[in-house]
């Protein structure tokens, strides 16, 4: 009789374990499934610079960016709110990996265009890509002063190029880090500025809630550090996401919203309060399903 109980007990135990076994048998297989890491960055821009993120196929992202005047301009200018420069731009996903974009900044009336290609996406699971990598190539045309007023500053003189290799990784579910060597070339510059500028961007993003993140960005110049009155671009901000919109609010010492300007023409000094309050509003439209 005693043994019957023991037998019954073992049988029940056996059944109970069998179910768990079946699931745990699957668990090891499940960890081999590679899935792309989601939500590394909310937007295609961190603050001024690009992120590794590309828009999906058929998505058109309209980005309206504003930078008010410097906070140090004082109460008469309402701490910069009286002045604003802006950029309006469109990013489009030709494929999930390949994006093209155009934009125009009111600051120096610069037109810009770029191609962006997401080479690698970080994946979870054993043997997945450990990081994401995106390549960026851009071209700019500065249209001020007017060509007809200053014909010696020719169309070709006004062109600039830029390139960047962005590498990013999301650590856990809250923290993303990006580093990107960047190069900007301007066809004509005034001494002591040189045609080629090199820098390294470092950006981070901390997820605070499901819809709110804290972002920071620092672009260190590698050459041309002897230029008076030019600083490294340092920015800090928040992303707020509401469905198809991303609102980015930030403080930055650069008036420029494209690499040509924020890498080589950042004139604000954080220590002196030359800080611009600004925002980017991004709205995604799905053109092709």
């Amino acid at each position: 009789m005693k043994f019957n109980f023991a037998f019954l007990f073992l049988l029940i135990l056996n059944v109970a374990f069998a179910q768990d076994d079946l699931l745990s048998e699957l668990e090891s297989q499940a960890s081999d499934i590679n899935t792309e890491v989601v939500g590394m960055f909310k937007g295609t821009r961190l603050i001024n610079g690009h992120t590794v993120k590309t828009k999906g196929r058929g998505e058109l992202d309209m980005i309206i960016s504003h930078r008010f005047g410097t906070i140090s301009s004082g109460p008469y200018e309402l701490f910069g709110l009286d002045n604003a420069s802006m950029r309006i731009g469109f990013d489009y996903g030709i494929t999930d990996k390949l994006n093209v974009g155009i934009g125009r900044s009111s600051n120096d009336k610069i037109y810009d265009g770029f191609i962006k290609y997401n080479l690698l996406s970080q994946e979870t699971g054993n043997g997945g890509n450990p990081f994401s990598m995106t390549l960026l190539a851009g071209i700019t045309e500065k249209t001020t002063p007017r060509l007809r007023d200053f014909p010696e500053f020719t169309f070709v003189n006004r062109i600039g190029y830029s390139g960047s290799i962005m590498i990013a990784r999301k650590f856990g579910d809250m923290f993303s880090l990006q580093m990107n060597p960047i190069w900007v070339h301007k066809n004509r510059v005034t001494a002591p500025e040189t045609n080629n500028a090199f820098g390294v961007g470092t950006g981070f993003r901390v997820k605070l809630t499901r819809s709110l993140t804290l972002n920071g960005e620092y672009y260190a110049r590698l050459n041309q550090r002897n230029m008076d009155g030019v600083y490294d671009a340092i920015s800090l901000g928040f992303d707020i996401e509401t469905g198809g919109h991303v609102f980015q609010l930030h403080l930055t010492n650069s008036a420029g919203m494209i690499d040509r300007v924020f890498l080589t023409e950042t004139y604000g000094n954080w220590l002196k309060g030359d800080i611009y309050f600004g925002f980017n509003i991004s709205r995604t439209f799905q053109l092709i399903k």
């Binding site: 699957l26 989601v38 999906g56 196929r57 998505e59």
Partner: peptide, 21 residues
């Protein structure tokens, strides 16, 4: 007895943004 595991991130949507959300 049956056991099934579905990887959540493998759900595919019409729109990339939906997948993200």
């Amino acid at each position: 007895e049956i056991a099934i595991i579905v990887p959540v991130a493998k759900f595919e949507f019409d729109k990339e943004l939906m997948k993200e959300h």
